[in-house]
Design a protein around this nucleic acid. Sequence first.
RNA 1: GGUCGGUUGGCCGAGUGGCUAGGCAACGGUCUGCAAAACCGUGUACGGCGGUUCGAAUCCGCCAUCGACCUCCA
Length: 490
Amino acid sequence: MENQLQIYNTLSRKKEVFTPLHPGKVGLYVCGPTVYGKAHLGHARPAVTYDLLFRYLKHIGYKVRYVRNITDVGHLANDADQGEDKIAKKARLEELEPMEVVQIYTNDYHKNMEKLNVLPPSIEPRATGHIIEQIEVVEKILAAGFAYESAGSVYFDVEKYAKSYPYGELSGRKIEDLQSSTRELDGQDEKHSPLDFAIWKKATPEHIMRWPSKWSDGFPGWHLECTAMSCKYLGETFDIHGGGMDLTFPHHEAEIAQSKAAYGKDSVRYWMHNNMITLNGQKMGKSLGNAISLDEFFSGDHPLLDKAYDPMTIRFFMLMAHYRSTLDFSNEALQAAEKGMERLLKATETLEKLNSGDSSTVNIAELTAKCYVAMNDDLNTPITIAHLFDGVKMINSIADGKASISAQDLEDLKAFYSTFVFDLFGLKKPGEESGANMEAFDSAIDLLLQLRQDAKANKDWATADKIRNELTNIGFVIKDTKDGFSWELK
RNA sequence: GGUCGGUUGGCCGAGUGGCUAGGCAACGGUCUGCAAAACCGUGUACGGCGGUUCGAAUCCGCCAUCGACCUCCA
């Protein structure tokens, strides 16, 4: 009873015990990327956060359908060309077909997600592939009387909606406040109220991404795709909707309104929002021009980066902070994460070689239980990691002969670390290469170190140190152990 | 201007009304031919001012400061 998964629901602003709508099954929808630029560190945060949730839900026994969309149409550009589709604009600049741009950046996103060991979702629907479904939602909202047509566009009537249902409950906004803080937007004079938002937009002549509809040749509104696609694949009401905090308003608020207007009921039961990555205390974002792309992290090719970072370092770095906290990027923090992760991964190797004793001086059951408690507490990965490091101490103590572990406990501990470190946290040991070349290479290094052993046996320290120092210079880490040596490539 | 959220030790980052978070870095020790690794041990923290309380970094108020959203955004 006490050990149930709790999730912080933005809607209620508190942690709630997670109970799925249909026992044993979970419907999860997450706002994916808008594919008009290279994937950056900001994209990695929700990807890793909800990947963890996806993995954990499956681990605790749920059958999960995880839907994460690709937004390839429908968002406005933020410069002078108001009303022009972001993707269409980029396409004209680069003289590419819009779908070509979409494909390039979708591929880039997929490639980077794979490097981060983010599992592909169950379904990855594209907005452009669901125009018909979106038009159907527009019709439903019109039929329900919560939208109106104006000059070929269809707008959602926020004020009318707010008379029947609460509007702004997710983001804590009040209609009156919103009315006093609006700004100029394209087509403002077509709207009854500045609060209204387009659910179908008539395309301007230069707008090349367009679809025919009874209202006009145009394109679906900016928030509509998630409503249409989540409903199609998860039903009118589903369990969890995730996304970045910056989407809370207006995007998710609009989704709530659209669903309720179209289907007459609440669509989402648990709203989850991950916080932002910051750079020098400022949000890192494509539109702010301070985003470092994932490719740049992996290659180290960026003025702000001291070095290249392994994708697993990025992943571990994110897991070291709670998903609802902002996470400040710095080389120092990333390198601390890198070293910590190395220590953790090394311990998993040590664990595999451990010998069991007659009894345990360590409490494995307590350790594993603590980790589950932390994970169930709104996916508290930093606490879980703290416990995993306590386990690292145990493992190293046992390896040092300063503690002992029973056969049963050892088996449990191995299974536990395999599950948490690899299956749930999704970490991978870097540089696990194989093949004939590697085997020959390994043997050659072993041979050198064997020569060093011989030199040591003869107390020929000069030769022994020469071999070690030269190998160290080349980039190896040489360690003497009780029964010989070990080495690795740094 | 409105709404919301931060402010924790050298850095990152948890958490809690009284009981060591953790990682990285630092220092001392054990081990080692010397190292490395590992292990053991050690230290300064909770933005400021008031208040509630036996006791607050943790609750309340005020102030300062930073940020997010209100426009596409992960």
